[in-house]
Design a protein around this nucleic acid. Sequence first.
DNA 1: AACTTAATTGAATGATCATTCAAGTAGTTT
DNA 2: AAACTACTTGAATGATCATTCAATTAAGTT
Lengths: 192, 192
Amino acid sequence: MRNAEFDRQEVLRGAMRAFLVKGYAKTSMQDLTKATGLHPGSIYCAFENKKGLLLAAISQYHDDRSRQFESLFNNDNNPLENLKRYFNNIVQECLSCDATQACLLTKALSEVGEQDEDISQLIHANLFAWQTAIEQVLDKAKSLDLINKQESTQTQAQYLMMGIYGLRTFGHTHPNEEVLQPLADKLLNSLL
Amino acid sequence: MRNAEFDRQEVLRGAMRAFLVKGYAKTSMQDLTKATGLHPGSIYCAFENKKGLLLAAISQYHDDRSRQFESLFNNDNNPLENLKRYFNNIVQECLSCDATQACLLTKALSEVGEQDEDISQLIHANLFAWQTAIEQVLDKAKSLDLINKQESTQTQAQYLMMGIYGLRTFGHTHPNEEVLQPLADKLLNSLL
DNA sequence: AACTTAATTGAATGATCATTCAAGTAGTTT
DNA sequence: AAACTACTTGAATGATCATTCAATTAAGTT
C-alpha cells in the first residue's frame, strides 16, 4: 500500500477556485493541474475524470460552507442577529468582486445543471440541505417570537434562498454597499 | 453588391437557443452551424467570430424581451395587474423546464461575465435598461396610489430585479407552481 | 450584357482539449 | 530485504475545437 501524497481538501479547494473563476467547460485539465498541483494521471487516479473532480469539488464546497454556517448559527445568540450577520457576510462577498467567493452550487447549476444528471442531483441535494438548515434557524427564531409565525417556515426559507440567489446575481452588476445592503435588509424584514 | 440570404433575426434566435441549452463554452461552432443554418464562413463573415455571435444574440434577446415587455406594459391597464401578469409569465417559464425560456442575460453573465469585458458591458447595459423600464412601471403605479410611495422607486425596482433573478434560479430546483407562485406573490406584495 | 462586389461554401489548418498509459517511485507487508 | 501494491509522472494520443481561405455563386451597378 501507499497513501496519496497530496492533501485532498486543498486539492479540491484549488479545483473549486479554478471552476469558480473560469467556469467548468472553460477550465482545462491544464488549468486544473496548475490549480491542484497534481499531474493529469494523479487527477484521473483520484477522481476518475474532470467531471469527477467537479463533483468532488462541489462536495468540498458544501462541506466548507456547512462548517461556516454552523459556526454562525450553532450558538446561543439571537437567531435573528445571526441571520443578519449571515446576510451581511453575503453582501461583503458580493462587494469583494472576487469570483472565488461566489456560490459554486448556483454557478455550476446554471452552467451544467440542465445538461448532466449526476451534477444536477448533487447540487439539488446540497441546496436542499441548505434550505433545511435555514428552516431550523427560522423555527428557532419562531420559538423565541422573533419573526412572523403566520407564514410557513418552508415558504419563508424558500423566500430567503431565492433572495440570496438573486442578491448574488444582482451583486455582479451592482457591487455597491449602498445598493446591496438595503436589499439584504429588506429581505430579512420580510420575515417580520 | 449582394445582400445576405439569411434572416438575421432567425439566425440570432437559433444561436440564442443553442447558447441557452449548452452554455457559451460548450456550444461548438458545429452546434452553431446547425442551430443557425449558416456555414462557418458565413458566420465569421457576418459576426466576426463566436464571441461576436454571442454579442449579437444577446442584443437580439434583449430586443425580443423588450418588445414583450412593452406589449405587457404599454397599455392603460392597471400597472399592478400588468406587473402581476409579468411575474406569472416568469413563473410559467420556470415551470416549463425549457432551457430555451431561461434568461440569456443572467446565464451569460454567470458563465462569462467576469471573464470578458465586452460581454460584461453589453449585459450590464441591457440589465440597466430593464431596471429603468421597471422603474417607469413603478412610478406609474405610484401616481395611481397603487403601491408604497415611501420607499424609493429605485430600491423597489432593484428588489424586484433581485427577486426575478432569484426566482429563476430557484425555479431550477423547484419547478413547482405551488412553490414558485407564492414566492412571486410575496415579491409583489413587498411593493405595498 | 458585362463588371464589380460581397456572400456562400466546405474542406483544410493548427491549436487545444480530455484522457491514457507505461515507466518510475515509494510506502507497506512478508 | 525482498516482494507487493498503489501513487506519481509526463509524454503521447486521438478527438474536437475555433478559425481561415480559395473557389464559387449571385445580386447590384454601369
